[in-house]
Every structure is written in structure tokens, then in C-alpha cells.
Design a binder for these strands. Structure first.
Lengths: 227, 227
DNA sequence: TATTATATTTTATACTAGATATAAAAGAGT
DNA sequence: ACTCTTTTATATCTAGTATAAAATATAATA
């Protein structure tokens, strides 16, 4: 009983739920490229009025998942390999900077939490159930690292990028686990040493390597689709 | 008659106008720190219903100008020196990357437009009226430079940062004009040469130097306020 | 009397639903 | 094939209702 962090504030508003639901559907690939998302249709589908849908769409526009044209509506713009490249390269750029600014503000409690999460991650098995858990722990790990950063905007941008990351199958993930574990270990190490520059460096490399692994996987799976 | 660029798409919706208006008011410092912005009050003030206000606030939240607490409403969070530091440092980071990715996609027409804008800027006088013109030309100049970049998200982030920049008095600006002119000249030069790395470098330095000038000015003006 | 707890009123947001305006599509006429 | 009109679909806006938080008043206890 030590973690009081709210999962995402207690945003129990309808608008928040609708945003989460639609984001999930888009990232799962439930919409075709360029498909139009009509407000009334989805209001019916989700059993709410049109306004929460409207507001959700406006937020998803900022996240880059839909494009809104005035008086024309929302057009879904799903994720391509180019998007993965963009998201991860920007994450490297921004999270590198964020952890550097964050580190001086992290206390012993935070560092302990990092280590605890690291231990949990290396203890996981590589089956489907545990990979979901891994995703969650990994997100928490990175979140704590940047949390101390006093810059509001950079944290907002990074959160947006995280929300735009499609969820990948366990097989994709398990391939990069060994490397990821070692990088995470180094990150904890440098955080303990309060070595900001080194922490920034390994964070950037960690994210860029993840990008390379994902792109390789996507390339492979696209080839299989064609055959 | 060669410039068909729409000022910001022809977003003639009420919601767009309201967002623009409220953003302007916040950046002008018309609200006190932490002041609550009630929907109904501003609906009356602007002569519209509450919904366009709601949507505007949600967008301004993403831009970091207000904070929305569920069932409590919008709280204005104005700009501090720390914010200026953050905005310009992030602009350097992101615009540097964006122009690098953009340059290969810029055609001769774009480069000519850059040069034309540069010529216009150096021809301006340093009085108030012309400084407003300078701000506009400068924004267009930077916009064209990054426009070719195929990454949606980075351009969205940069646009957000630009929207959050408070407008400064001519006296602040005129102090850095000579340096800015020289940097802009170099940027045109490197763009012509298709030298992406150099362009990135000078763009970053240009923005960071602007940051330093602004911070010095803010420091000075804050001292005057205290006396 | 002061102070805490509880009930009531007030205020503002979140939501629903209906009216309006606008843009794309279909159809009629040249 | 092209322009103009009509239709239809759908986003945008207004207005009214419900609900939650905050403020105030009332009661109870030390």
C-alpha cells in the first residue's frame, strides 16, 4: 500500500471514457484508412449523445489519430511504418531531454520504485498474459523517470506519443526483452548515480533500438501479408 | 498572385474563432494566475452559447494555457520565464529535427519564397507597426522551412509551441534584429545548398539565441516592476 | 462559546436533445 | 458535357436538464 498514483486521474466523465474507447478502436485497426467517423453513428453505438463524441474527436485530432475538416467531420488516419518511425524518434528526442531535466527532482522513493519495477519486469515469463503486464510495467517505469521534469509541455507531448503507440503482439516484444532488460538496468544504475547525461544517452538509445526492432518486425509481417 | 496558402485553413467555425480569441486574451495577460474561467460568463461576453467555449477550452488545455479539472472547470495558467525557457528550448529541439527532414521536400518555389520573406524582413523599420509585420513574416519564414517535413506529429507540436508564445513589445524584438537577420540569411543560404545538417544547426542556434535575449529582457523588466 | 458534523442551498459543469446551417451528392435543364 | 437547382446527410450551435462540487446554514457536542 504505497502507490497512490491514480491510473489517469479519476476522470470518470463520459467524455474521457469515449475518448479512451475510440482511441483503442483506432489503434486496434478497426477503421479503414481514410474512413469517415460520423458522430451520430458512434453516438448510437456507444449509447451516448453526440457531444462527448465531438469532444473525444477533437482530442484525438491533437493526438494525430483523426483529422477534422470543418463541416466535413472526422477522418481516421491509422498508423503506418512511417508513423512508428516518427513516434519513436520523437520519443527518443523528447524523453532524453525530459529525463535529464527530471533526474535532479527524483527522490529515493522514486528510485526505489524504479528498481522494484525493473525487478518485476525481469521476473516475467514470455507468454501472452505476462507480456500485457510487461507493457504496463514498462510504461510505469518510463513514466516515473520523466515525472520530475518541471516542463509541462514536453510531458504533454510525450504522453501524446505514448497514447499513439499501437499495441504489439507478444512475439514482437519477446524478441527485444533481453536487450531491454539490460538497458533498463543501466537506466536504474545511472539514476542512482544521478548521472543525467549518461541516463539521457541510454534512454535515447533504448528507444531508438526499440524502434529498429519494431520496424524490422513490421517489415517482416508486411511481407507475409503480401504472400 | 502566387501565394494560395490559407492563413490557417478557412476554419470559419465559431469554435475556431472563440479558441483564437481566448488564446489571445490569455497570452495578453488579461487573466490572473489561477483565475477560473467560467463557461457561462464567457459565453455571454462573446455572445455565443456554452458549447464553443467548452471545445475551445479543451483545445487550450492541450496547448497548456488552461488546466481543466473534471466537474470543476478551467483554470488559467499564464506564462512565466520558465515557460519561455521551455517553449524555446523545445522549439530548438523540434524545429531543428523538422527542417532536417523537411529540406529534401522543399522545391525551388519554396526556396524563392524564403528569400522573398528574408528580403522583406530586412527592409522593415524598427517602429511598432513594422514589428507586427516582422512577427508575421518571421512566422511564415519558419513555417515554410518545416512545411516539407512528412511527420505530422512533430509539426503539430511545433504549431502548439508557436501558439503559446506571448507577443512581445517592439523594443524586445528590435534588440535582436541584426543577429536574427544574419541567421535568417544563413538559413536561406543552407537551404539553397541543400545542406540539411548546417541548416539544422543554425536553426537551433537561432532559436536558442532568441530564447537568451527574451530571458534577459524578462529579467530586466521584472526588476523594474519590483522597484 | 467554539467547533465539528450534517443538511440545505447555490453554482457551474457535464450531458441530452432538438434546431439550424452548410457542404457534398443527385437530379434537372441548357 | 456543363451549369444550376434540389435534396440529403451531417456537423455545428442553442437551449434546457441533471448532477456534482462548493458554500452556507443549521444542529449537536465538547
Amino acid at each position: 500500500m504505497e502507490n497512490f498514483r491514480l491510473s489517469d486521474q479519476d476522470r470518470a466523465t463520459l467524455q474521457f471514457k469515449v475518448t479512451t474507447k475510440l482511441r483503442e478502436l483506432i489503434l486496434k485497426g478497426e477503421f479503414k484508412m481514410g474512413e469517415r467517423l460520423t458522430q451520430e453513428e458512434w453516438a448510437k453505438n456507444l449509447g451516448v449523445s453526440r457531444m462527448p463524441i465531438r469532444e473525444a474527436l477533437r482530442q484525438l485530432e491533437v493526438e494525430g489519430l483523426v483529422r477534422i475538416e470543418p463541416r466535413r467531420g472526422a477522418i481516421v488516419t491509422p498508423i503506418s511504418a512511417e508513423d512508428v518511425e516518427e513516434i519513436y524518434q520523437l520519443r527518443a528526442l523528447l524523453e532524453g531531454q525530459a529525463v535529464l531535466k527530471s533526474l535532479p527532482f527524483l527522490d529515493d522513493e522514486d528510485i526505489n520504485e524504479l528498481e522494484r519495477l525493473y525487478e518485476k519486469m525481469i521476473a516475467l515469463k514470455e507468454d501472452e498474459k505476462d507480456m500485457e503486464e510487461y507493457m504496463e510495467l514498462n510504461a510505469q517505469f518510463h513514466h516515473i523517470l520523466r515525472e520530475g521534469c518541471p516542463w509541462r509541455r514536453i510531458k504533454g507531448f510525450i504522453d501524446t506519443l505514448w497514447k499513439g503507440i499501437p499495441s504489439y503482439t507478444p512475439s514482437v516484444l519477446s524478441h527485444h526483452l533481453k536487450e531491454a532488460h539490460e538497458e533498463h538496468r543501466l537506466m536504474v544504475e545511472y539514476a542512482k548515480q544521478k548521472n543525467g547525461e549518461k541516463l539521457k544517452e541510454v534512454t535515447e538509445n533504448h528507444i531508438l533500438r526499440t524502434r529498429d526492432n519494431l520496424l524490422k518486425m513490421i517489415e517482416k509481417s508486411e511481407k507475409i501479408d503480401v504472400e
